[in-house]
Structure formats: C-alpha cells, structure tokens
Computed example of a mutant assay.
Amino acid sequence: MDLADRIFAIKSISDFNRACLEVFALQASRCAVYADYLSLLGVAPAAVQSITAIPFLPIEFFKNHRVYSAGPDAEVIFSSSGTTGSVQSKHYVADAAIYRQSFRTAFEQFYGQPRDRAVLALLPSYSEREGSSLIYMVDDLIRQSRHPQSGYFLYDHRALRDVLLELKAKDTPTLLIGVTYALLDFVEAYGVDFPGLTVMETGGMKGRRREMIREEVHQRLCKGFNVAQIHSEYGMTELLSQAYAARDGRFHCPPWMKIFIRDTNDPFSGLGTGKTGAVNVIDLANIHSCAFIATQDLGKTHDDGSFEVLGRFDQSDIRGCNLLIQ
C-alpha cells in the first residue's frame, strides 16, 4: 500500500500521527521552500518526533513560491480568485487523482454517493473559472450525478427555481451549493419552499454585499428555502481536502485532515479547545506540496473535534469563493 492509499485508509489517531511524520519527512527533504523555512527556524527534520513539533508553513508562501515536493511537472495548477492587481495563490498538484480521491471520499463520508442526488450549483462552470479547485470538485460531483437536472444556474435564477420545484415534486434528494451572496440573491428574488433541500454555502460576500455574521446569513437562507439548517464547506486553493458543517457552523474534517489553533501573538504556540486563535491545518492529501499550513483564518476547536471559523486577520487579502465572479 503506497503512502496515498495509507492516508485515505486512516482509521485512528495513531494512523494519523504516523502518516504525518512520514509526510513531514518527505516534504522536509523534497519541498525546497519548506526545507528553507525549516532551516531558517533552526528545525532539524530528524529531530521532529511528534506532530506537535512540526512547523506550519505560512499560507502566503503559495503566492510567491512554488510549494511543491514532486517532479518534474504538476498535472494541475489551482489558483485562487483575487481582486485586480492582487497576487494569486497557486497550488501545484502533481497528481489530480489524489485530489479526486480526497474530495470524493470526504463527500461520500458526509453526504453519501453524489450519483444518488441532484447537484445544483450557484457557481460559474469550470470552463468559465478554470483553475478553481472548488469548481473542479463541483464539476466532478455534477458529472457523477445521475440526475439530468444537475448543473450550473448562476446566471439563470428563474431556471433554478423551476428545477428546484420540479425536484421537490419528485421528492429527489438535492444539493444546492453556491457562494453565499449568490444564494442570498436567489432567495431575495425567488423564495422556494423545499424543506428537504440541502443548501451548502461556500462563504464569501466581500465586495458584493454588506458583511453579515453567519447567524444572520443562515437565518435568511433558512427562511428563503424553508430548511432547518444551512450546510457549509471549508476549503481553499492551498488545500486538497474539505471540511463540512451540517449545522451551526461547526465543521468536521475527514480522517486525514486536522485543525489546530495557534496563538495570534506567538505563531509557534498552540491553544487548547475553546480558545480563539489562528487556524493551522494539517491536510495529508497535500502529499506533493505542503501538508502543514498556517492560514489567515481565525477560529476555535471543540472537544468533539469540530471547529468554527470566526473571521480573518485584519489586513489579510480579500480572497475565496466570493471572488469567483467579477
């Protein structure tokens, strides 16, 4: 069983810890940017014997460096959305099959087989936003769906309303995934009473609508679709895994992904559960780039292993799924 297979077969904390140390040793020797970073920190890779001793690479490195630990060429390069003149993050992916295995396995773990539901997207299609890891995933889920109504509806809200009503009448399991402001735009124009619908927001309104706290957003969406809960997806260009929240903004990770919280005043000091700090992510699907990422998100973890995202650092770039559409 190769390393990728072992990662997606993780069943326990000990499995996770062993895989972390193996991936760390690999990337400390093969990822030039990460190796230089460790050297500047004075960290000898051979001395790292526990996952708590593994340094996290600041996510900003993906904007100005080639964070890559395989060769020679990447199969896919994912890029972040950004405002005019901003520097985009780039994620060099050596093997797109690993990304597909990651998001397919995680989606099935949380939501079941995509072929068993209609998948509707308030997002641009992949041909319009080539390079988006989110659209790559959604495009694959749509193609796996066996329902002919599955597809993109960003530019035709009336058609989306009609399809939702048709699917409701047939009692078809349905997922509607979209950027937050597009979902709000839709419910303000066409409210749809569909209590069985799974509505998943991917975040983001900067530059499109006034900022609202999550509770207000979810309250409006719940009312607009007549659903009890709004689901959320947590992912980013620099990661090859996603976490999902089925209620109350509490995200859960697949077994090969884990969240840690660092002190905002001391980036090398961790915080316990319930304390707000900056989000560090271990994403072992990032086998061929860097699996240990210090993000610009603020959040906290809980005793059940879930986590919340509470915001972003001041001065951090506007980025994310809300900028997919300009």
Results as ranks from 00 to 15, higher is better:
70 A>L: 05
251 F>S: 00
66 R>D: 00
231 H>V: 11
189 A>R: 15
266 D>P: 01
219 Q>E: 14
196 G>S: 04
269 S>F: 01
120 L>C: 10
151 G>E: 01
231 H>K: 08
206 K>T: 12
286 N>T: 03
290 C>P: 09
86 S>L: 09
165 L>K: 06
166 E>M: 12
236 M>D: 02
18 R>P: 08
4 A>L: 07
107 F>W: 13
11 K>R: 07
243 A>N: 03
326 Q>S: 15
96 A>Q: 04
4 A>F: 01
263 D>M: 10
243 A>T: 12
145 S>K: 02
231 H>A: 13
301 T>R: 11
102 S>W: 06
305 G>S: 12
303 D>M: 03
26 L>V: 07
241 S>Q: 02
121 A>T: 07
283 D>Y: 04
158 R>Y: 13
45 P>I: 11
250 R>C: 10
322 N>A: 06
212 M>D: 04
131 G>W: 07
208 R>G: 04
68 Y>K: 00
62 F>N: 02
245 A>D: 09
116 D>A: 09
284 L>D: 01
145 S>L: 08
265 N>I: 07
121 A>M: 14
165 L>C: 15
222 C>Q: 14
62 F>P: 06
89 S>M: 02
136 Y>R: 15
143 R>I: 03
69 S>Q: 03
197 L>M: 05
237 T>H: 06
120 L>K: 15
306 S>M: 08
116 D>I: 06
3 L>Q: 15
108 E>W: 04
201 E>D: 12
57 L>I: 14
324 L>W: 13
291 A>F: 07
276 T>N: 14
218 H>E: 08
298 L>I: 01
181 Y>S: 03
254 P>D: 05
270 G>I: 14
114 P>L: 11
244 Y>S: 11
69 S>K: 00
161 R>F: 07
69 S>R: 02
95 D>T: 14
125 S>Q: 06
273 T>S: 12
77 I>D: 07
160 L>T: 11
223 K>I: 06
131 G>R: 00
213 I>C: 13
311 G>I: 13
229 Q>D: 13
161 R>K: 12
47 A>V: 04
114 P>Y: 09
314 D>F: 12
8 F>R: 09
213 I>Q: 13
48 V>S: 08
223 K>T: 13
150 S>R: 04
253 C>I: 03
265 N>R: 10
22 E>V: 00
317 D>Q: 05
126 Y>C: 00
172 T>G: 09
308 E>M: 09
